[in-house]
Design a protein around this nucleic acid. Sequence first.
DNA 1: GTCATCATGTAAGCCGTTACATGATTGC
DNA 2: GCAATCATGTAACGGCTTACATGATGAC
Lengths: 219, 219
Amino acid sequence: MIDLAILGLLDEQDLHGYELKKQLAELVGARSGVSFGSLYPALARLEKLGAVKAVEATTIVEATIPMTGALSGEIAAFRARLGRPAKGRRTRKVYGITAIGRSRLRELLVDDTADDRTFTVQVAFCHTLLPEQRVALFERRRAELDRRLVERTRSGADSAGTYRRSLREHDTQTITHDLAWIDELIGAARAELAASDEADPSTKPITKTRSHSQEGTPS
Amino acid sequence: MIDLAILGLLDEQDLHGYELKKQLAELVGARSGVSFGSLYPALARLEKLGAVKAVEATTIVEATIPMTGALSGEIAAFRARLGRPAKGRRTRKVYGITAIGRSRLRELLVDDTADDRTFTVQVAFCHTLLPEQRVALFERRRAELDRRLVERTRSGADSAGTYRRSLREHDTQTITHDLAWIDELIGAARAELAASDEADPSTKPITKTRSHSQEGTPS
DNA sequence: GTCATCATGTAAGCCGTTACATGATTGC
DNA sequence: GCAATCATGTAACGGCTTACATGATGAC
């Protein structure tokens, strides 16, 4: 999940760790937010994989040293050895995404083993997918939610106690709410797909997906 | 969380690991369910703490071999070497809760550092709390959700892209839905509190808690 | 000059998942 | 006899959180 979020954000703009964390927090919520202790190691890992690379120190840094390739890490140390950082500016390491990173991002965006939290991040960055990939992503999610709802109908119902019953009902409503949202997303994605098919009508017509769960609003 | 769930279930009835897992799955959902790899170690840990203890092997098993401590793994091999198990019944270990376990359960039920998932388990077993503890638990949760909603109003709003905006709105609606649910729970708990005050009117009258978030349904 | 914030990292430890290893019972 | 389910564990591995260590900048 953290890889997906990092790559997704870096695909939009170059960022340094601290700023990355802030944007991450805004994306997924402050709590359940990524901590430095997982962010920096994740960045280091992605850098080692060649998915991201450190770019300039963002600020003035006149007489820019030709920062090609894998030297990025060295440069900070170099500046530190020289004396102070490149002039009134702090030592921060700005990362950018690479071709490898973009390829990895595309993989992660369509990964169907993603958990709930990861799915929301996939939605946040799904605009980079092809319309049909987006539709597929949403429909897989819809099927999963549908499965949960059916499963919940199958078992349970025996839940003893006011609070336990209330809890179960709330869970059911939450899934139903999520389903309604996914249906909205599918609608939007289908519209885009239709629009792109108009430009290139070589693809097949839209197939309807039917739900196994009952429609309507159960009291 | 797993300790809370185990103790809560064992407080209702004695259970063996496998059955415990099934009931756990029903309680919190099959996915996000506890795996054996965490359940059995958790049971072992709780047993070592004296919070649970193994009771009879449920079934006939006469001449039960004393299954103490860390030998368990060896014993299976031992029995296998000897011949067949202790007589026509399966080897299952049924656990029961102890006084220590009940005390620990009460602690975990009112623990205010619980995460979202843990809170739902607290609700599932909150009937064992005193009415005022229940009200306090719910109101702390309400305050937390309120905080999230306010925080979300504070920042954001700049979210670019259809899908990102839809995601944000869905999150907000989910929190609002959760808030409405908590308010229901608070209502129920307050009613119980009032009922118990009727019997013992020594406690103080109900104080109203006001929300910081706007009421009504934002489009 | 000191405090808050910005900024980057490391280390220990916890907790949980996956996969492995075993074996019993029941139904077909 | 074979498969599915019941049943209990261990071991390896990974990832995340917490806490620690360090230091710069800017505001008051």
